[in-house]
Design a protein around this nucleic acid. Structure first.
Lengths: 347, 347
DNA sequence: AGCGCTCCCGGGAGCGCTCCCAAAAAAACC
DNA sequence: GGTTTTTTTGGGAGCGCTCCCGGGAGCGCT
């Protein structure tokens, strides 16, 4: 009962080739026949068979998204916002997205095997990994499948395209801001440290302290992993250490939120006693009490640019790997005490 | 350079048909030729072309997952845990998953159109919607595509398969427990109320109160939406109302967490002054301080069962729509004050 | 030896589409 | 009006696979 292109062509009184042209928006079809064919298609709710099309075009119109995040980070706001960015572009280009979500450490080989096995289904892949060195990357390179990373890789830099943000610069902005507001004992709750974003933010933090002749006190650095809970416990740990501090630069907004909660429980006032800066500027950063000063990274754009780049690569429009670094910017809110309530900047 | 089945057959000295039999584990192939063919496949890293296979078998080996959640709920732990359950089964059966995530209210028609357009790519679909009435359901029924819902639908009950949990019973357990521990002014922070799960939990709450001759006080019911933030603000709202209460039954663990935070800020002790019960038993329920008494629903199993059912439907093993309701169970922890620390039950 | 039966195997059709190429029609030009 | 150019159309091959069907080899039995 399902009609195929042949049927449509017959009903419209044209050849299969012409009907195909209409469907694929080829220019050389007269207005009359085009209209005729479209009517028949419409009347019969015809939809071209995608498998057949894939077979001959060697294109699937599907993009893979590989996310190697632990659940704790998967549930952070970063992921859905990123997905939103990716989807914006895929939707525009009629691409579907095949999602691969791997919890690190869980059946690693099988995961990779499965991706490799189904790689034909995807015209290209967007990869976001927390762990810096992943066998995935090597496999992708070997498999010759177009892919774009969302983090700066540590190896094969000149063979891999990626879209990232200027984490180091952002971290510098954060710490500079804290210093300018008069803080001198600045703690850092790190991000995931086998993740390049986390490393870069830590590096930026160190850099600014050194530049200002402040010593980098290991007692002020607590390792966390970008999750809210880790921020909470890192802050508890920091408090337990009994060291003196007047500001906290958290690895991201999530961990900042956790840290804030821990400070509230310890009756420490933000920003009066301790200034707090996050990173990312996820939507909820503005909803915290106090509103969170943070480093904005264009998450949506990060996803969009990566996707657009990937599509260009698939289309053969990109000759050599592209490295895109999006800017970060300081967004000042209440948690660093600079603004009085009436001065709060609007979005 | 890419080999096809023809090449493999030639290299192994057999016909294409025989090579195909080997690949598809057909029985009638002699051990010798099977071995031969497998060797050639192995040596050349041959992978069958999925598009061609799809074209002839009419199967894609892809499952669609449609999630209609706002971002706030998407980031709750429920989603990744559910996905984990689904993936467990799809992985076992070599199915890939195409994910469609819709933020309610955002370009609804286009979303539906896209799914319909690509429905051929999916052998079946798993649907989880917050909004009770969704045009999606009607479209799916009309499109004759096998699907399983993760919530009990309100219409077409006898045409739709679903896997849900006994929300109402769970809610009853929660409130009964609170009453047994001596609470009488029990507040409820509802779940999303245009969601059937949320409705059922509210209904269970009402039912138990009435059964015990306690009046259902509207002042004790605050609408929330399953997100942590909504729980936080709902609790603030409840406190602002100035009504007396000695227990809170939250729509889920996330909102319970938010409520807990609000109570901490208001210096209300849980469980000493107010007992708190959640719903879901997500992993972090045990990490809260105090650990959260909650109603456990088998989230992973919910995903697994739905997926398994869907695969059975696709295989034609299911003649009429199935309705699966998984049990819920009370998990008592510190937040209802029943257990002293040394009595805490282990998992 | 002859018969029937099972077990293996190969030939060939066909899934539904795109795209090349050549032919036909239309348009443009002198 | 004839010729060249451009535009529009159709025929046919081919993408890589599965599966039906029929033929042949091998085996056991009378």
């Amino acid at each position: 009962m399902k009609l195929n292109l042949e049927d449509i062509a017959r009903l419209a009184g044209v050849s299969r080739a012409t009907a195909s042209r209409v469907i694929n928006h080829h220019p050389n079809v007269s207005a009359g026949t085009r209209k005729k064919v479209l009517e028949v298609i419409e009347a019969n709710h015809y939809q071209p068979n995608l498998a057949a099309r894939m077979l001959v075009t060697q294109r699937t119109q599907i993009l893979g998204i590989v996310i190697q995040f632990p659940e704790a980070i998967f549930v952070s706001e970063y992921v859905p916002v990123l997905l939103r960015g990716i989807n914006t572009v895929t939707n525009e280009h009629d691409y579907a997205t095949l999602m691969w979500w791997e919890r690190p450490g869980v059946e690693k080989e099988r995961f990779l095997g499965r991706i490799l096995q189904q790689k034909q289904l995807m015209d290209g892949i967007i990869i976001s990994v927390t762990a810096i060195s992943s066998p995935l990357i090597d496999s992708m390179l070997e498999a010759q499948i177009p892919f774009v990373m969302l983090e700066r890789p540590t190896r094969h830099l000149d063979e891999i395209s990626y879209v990232t943000v200027d984490n180091r610069h952002g971290a510098r902005l954060a710490v500079e801001h804290l210093i300018q507001t008069g803080c001198s004992r600045i703690a850092h709750l790190t991000g995931t440290l086998d993740n390049i974003d986390g490393q870069d933010r830590l590096a930026g933090y160190r850099e600014v302290l050194e530049k200002h002749g402040l010593q980098v006190d290991p007692a002020l650095i607590v390792e966390a992993n970008f999750s809210r809970r880790s921020g909470y416990f890192a802050m508890k740990e920091l408090l337990a250490r009994g060291v003196d501090f007047d500001a906290v630069f958290a690895g991201n907004d999530n961990s900042a939120e956790g840290a804030l909660q821990a400070m509230k429980e310890a009756s420490i006032s933000v920003p009066d006693e301790v200034a707090l800066v996050g990173f990312d500027d996820v939507p909820t950063a503005q909803d915290l009490d106090p509103q969170l000063t943070t480093i904005r990274q264009p998450i949506v754009e990060r996803g969009m640019r990566a996707t657009a780049l990937l599509l260009d690569m698939i289309a053969g429009k990109v000759e050599k790997p592209q490295h895109i670094v999006l800017p970060t910017q300081l967004v000042i809110r209440r948690s660093t005490g600079v603004l009085r309530a009436e001065e709060r900047s609007e979005e």
